[in-house]
Amino acid sequence: MRFTRRHPMLAAVLLCALAVLAARPTDGDGSHAPGHGSPSGVGAQVARLYEEAAAATERYEAGRREAERQRARAQRLEGRLDRERRAMAGLHGELGRIASSQYRDGGGLPLTAHMLLADDPEEMMRGQRAVRQAEVSLDKAIDRSERAEARLARDEARAAAAWKGLEQRNAELAALKQGIERKLEAARWKLQGQADASVAAGACRGAVRLDQPETHFTTRWVAPVETYVLSASYGSGGARWANRHTGQDFAVPIGTPVRAVGTGKVVKVSCGGAFGIEVVVRHAGGYYTQYAHLAAVAVDQGERVSPGQWIGQSGTSGNSTGPHLHFEVRVTPEMGSAVNPVAWLARRGVSL
C-alpha cells in the first residue's frame, strides 16, 4: 500500500540542497573518517547548479503569484466587458424605439408642410415640441452609445492584452520550471555518481555540511523524511533480501534531506556493502536507527544530533533498485536485531 505526503513546491525544490560538495575520499575499510568535506571540481559544479536552481525557484514563485494576479485582472475585465455589452444592447434598443417614434410622428417633414396639413395648429405645435424632445433624446442616446462603444473597444483591447500577457508569462514559467527540473536532475545524479564512487572504493567522503533548516518541532520524534511515498514495508518478502525486509522504505528523489528521528549520537557512518552509504544513530533506551542507501552524509561519527536535524541525503547506493531511504530500528548497532519501525515510531507519536 502506498501513502503520499505532499508539501509546497518550494520545499520540494530545496531538496536539491543536496548539491553541496564532496570532500577528498579517505582510505580505509569503508568506515567514515570525521572531518569536513572541501569542494572539488564536480562538487563545486553541483553547488553552482543548486544556487542557480534556488534563484530560479524564487523567480518562479514570484512569477506564479504575478500570473495569478494577471488572471484575476483579466477575469475582472471580462466581467466588465459583459456588463458593457449588455448596456450597449440596451442602448441600441432605445435608439431603435426613438427612431420608430419619429417615423410614426412624421419626422423629417418641413414645419410649413406640417402646418398646412394639420387640422389643429395648436395640436401640431405640441407635436413639434414632442418631436424636438425626441430628437434631443436621440442625440443624447447616440452620444451615450458612442462613448460606450469607445469604452468597450478600449476595455476589449486591455482584456486581450492581459490574456496575452498571462499566456506569455505561463509559457515563460513552464520553460523556467523545465529548466529547474533539468538542473535538479543533473545535480542529483552527479551527487549519486560521487556516492557510487565512494561505495566502489569502500571509502566515505567527508561530511557534507548542509545549511540546516529553521525547524521548531514540538515533539521529540519525527519522520526520517518530510515528503515521501511508503514503499517496501517491514517484514515483506522479496528476491533482494535473504529472509525478510528488515526496515521501512521511503521512496524519495535522490538528494532528499534525511532527518534524525530523535535525539541521539552517531555511532556509525560507513560506505560499501548492501546498504551502500549508511548512518546509524543511538537513542536513549537502547534503540538504534539506521538510514541506508544514502547519496551523502552530513554528520560525523561521534556527533550528537537532534530531532529533525539533516544527517544525510537520500540516494540509491548499495543493493538498491531505485532512489529511496531504507530506515531501520534496531536493539543493537548491527543488522539482525531489527524491530518494526512503523510501530516503533507510532508509539512515539509519529504516524507514517
Rank of each mutant, 00 (worst) to 15 (best):
F3H: 07
R5I: 14
H7M: 08
H7S: 08
P8S: 09
P8V: 07
M9Y: 14
A11R: 15
A11C: 02
C16P: 11
C16A: 07
A19F: 09
A19M: 09
H32G: 14
G37R: 10
P39C: 02
S40Q: 13
R48L: 09
E51D: 05
E51G: 01
A54I: 08
A56L: 15
E61Y: 05
A67L: 11
R69W: 02
R69T: 03
R73W: 00
A74L: 04
L77H: 13
G79P: 08
R80V: 13
D82I: 02
A89G: 08
H92Y: 03
A99Q: 01
Q102K: 07
Y103R: 15
A113H: 07
A113N: 12
M115P: 00
M124Q: 09
M125Q: 11
Q128T: 03
A130L: 07
V131H: 09
A134C: 06
L138Q: 13
D139E: 07
K140Q: 06
E146Y: 01
R147P: 06
R147V: 15
R147D: 06
E149S: 12
L152P: 01
A153H: 06
R154D: 15
A157W: 14
G165K: 09
G165E: 14
Q168G: 04
R169A: 13
L173Q: 09
Q178M: 13
E181F: 08
K190E: 09
L191Y: 00
Q192R: 11
A197Q: 12
V199Q: 00
A200P: 05
A201H: 07
A201L: 08
G202L: 11
R205S: 12
V208N: 07
L210D: 03
L210P: 06
P213W: 01
H216N: 05
T218S: 11
T218C: 03
T219R: 13
V225Y: 05
V229D: 12
V229I: 09
L230S: 12
Y234G: 00
G235S: 03
S236Y: 06
A239N: 02
R240Q: 09
R240C: 02
A242I: 09
R244I: 02
V252Y: 03
G255P: 10
P257D: 10
P257M: 14
G262N: 12
T263R: 15
T263C: 04
G264D: 05
K265F: 00
K268G: 00
A274P: 02
E278R: 15
G285Y: 05
Y287N: 05
A296D: 13
A298R: 07
D300W: 10
V305G: 04
I311E: 01
G312M: 11
T321V: 15
G322V: 07
P323E: 04
P323A: 13
L325T: 15
H326T: 13
F327V: 11
M335H: 11
M335L: 07
G336D: 14
G336W: 00
S337K: 02
V339R: 05
N340C: 05
L345R: 10
R347Q: 14
R348S: 04
R348P: 04
G349I: 00
G349Y: 01
V350M: 04
S351W: 08
